[in-house]
Simulated assay, not measured.
Amino acid sequence: MIELPKNQEYQGSRSRQCSTTLYFIFSTLTFSHGPIIKSPLSKIVVVVWCFVVLILVQSYTASLSSILTAKRLRPLMTDLDQLRSSGDFVGYQDDSFVRPFLVNHNFSESRLRNYTTKEEYAAALRMGSKNGGVSAIIDEIPYLTSFLSDRRYKNDFRMLGSIYKTPGFGFAFRLGSPLVHNLSTAILHLAGWDEGSRIERKWFGSASPPMGPSMVPDMGSTPLTFQSFSGLFVITVSISTLMLLISIMRSIHAKCTGLTKAEDESRPLQNTMGGDPSPVPQPFPVDGSDNSGGVEGSSENVGGIEPDSVQQNGIQDASVHAGHI
C-alpha cells in the first residue's frame, strides 16, 4: 500500500498486485527479496519485519532440532522390569542389602557388579554395559544423592526410575529406653515438615530428585506459540501502521498542495476571460514591417467578418479587442 502510488512494480491489475505482494512476503523468509522497494517508509517496515523473520526462523530451527533429538536423549530404561528384560549389567554398592533385593526381583547374579567408591560408579556408567561397565546402578537414595551432589558427576548422570520402598534404616536401643519415643517423634517431625528437605539441601545440594515412569519430565523444549512472539508482532504491526499513516498523510498533503497551485495558476486566466475591459495587446508586425497588409479588425468592421478567417497574403490577423470575443 505504501509503494502502490509511485512504484511501477506494484501497479497493474488486482491479481498482479496480489501476486507481487504475496511473493515479496514469502521471499523475506529466505531473505531473497524480489520486487524493489523505493519509499523510505517501506524500507523501515521491511527492516523491522526481516528482524522478526530472523528470530522466527532461528526459533523454528532450534525447536525442530529439539524435537528431533529429544527422544534420543530420553533414558531407555526407567524401571527394573525394562532393566531385567534388557539383559544388561547392573551395579550396586558393595556390602549393601541391594544385592539380595535385586536377586529377589529375578536378576541373575552373573549380571550384578559391585562397586565401592563414587569414582567406580562414574567409570562403570561411562563405559556402559557393552564395554565392561553397567547400564544402571541400583542403590539407596541417600547414597545416590551424595553421588549426584558431587560437582564432577551431577551434570553427567541423573536419578531415574521407580522408587522401591524397603525397610530402610533403623536405630536399636535397649528395652525400656526413654530415647525410643523421643527419637521416633523427631524422625516423624523431620519427615513431615520441610526441615528434612532443608538439611538435605544443606549437605547434598539440589540433586536430581527420584522420578517414577509417570514422573519423567519431557526433555523437549517448551512449545512455541503465538504468545511466545506476541511482543515482536505488536512492534511490527505498530511500526507498519505508523508508516502507512505517514504515507497516507503525505499523499493527502501532496494532493492539497497540488490543488492550491492549480487554483493559483488558473486565477489570471479567469480574470482575463471574465470580461476585462483592457484590450488585448496588438500582435507585433510580421517580417519586421509596419504595414503587414492585413485587415485590422475593429469595433466598426468586425461585425461581418470572422476573426479566425480574416487572411490576406497568407497572414492571419486576430487583433480584435477582448470585448468583441
Rank of each mutant, 00 (worst) to 15 (best):
Y115F: 15
D218Q: 03
G161C: 01
S309Q: 11
Y23D: 02
M77C: 10
Y153H: 08
C256V: 06
K261L: 15
S27V: 00
E119Q: 09
S214W: 03
V320Q: 11
M219S: 10
A191Q: 14
S65C: 08
C18F: 13
I235S: 06
G170V: 07
I252H: 04
N104P: 01
E140R: 12
L244Q: 06
A136C: 12
G34Y: 00
A254S: 14
F226T: 04
F51W: 08
E306L: 11
S129Q: 04
Q316G: 10
K118Q: 10
L125W: 06
G258Y: 04
G12R: 00
S42R: 03
I239H: 01
I2H: 03
L190M: 15
T145S: 15
Y23E: 02
L76C: 11
P100D: 04
S214Y: 05
F171I: 15
S85D: 13
S63C: 07
S13I: 01
K6M: 07
S110F: 03
F101V: 04
T20I: 00
M273W: 14
C18I: 13
E195Q: 11
W203G: 02
N271F: 06
L56T: 05
K154Y: 13
K130Q: 12
S230M: 03
I163S: 10
G205Y: 05
L224S: 08
F107Q: 06
I44C: 07
S197N: 11
M127R: 15
S299I: 02
P307Y: 05
M219Y: 15
V286M: 06
Y153D: 03
Y164D: 10
L80I: 06
G304F: 13
Q93M: 14
V237R: 04
Q316N: 11
T166V: 10
K43G: 04
T69C: 10
S15P: 00
D276W: 07
I315F: 06
S278G: 05
G176N: 07
V47F: 11
S214T: 12
S319C: 08
T225L: 13
M273I: 14
F229Q: 05
D264P: 04
G91R: 00
L144H: 01
S292H: 03
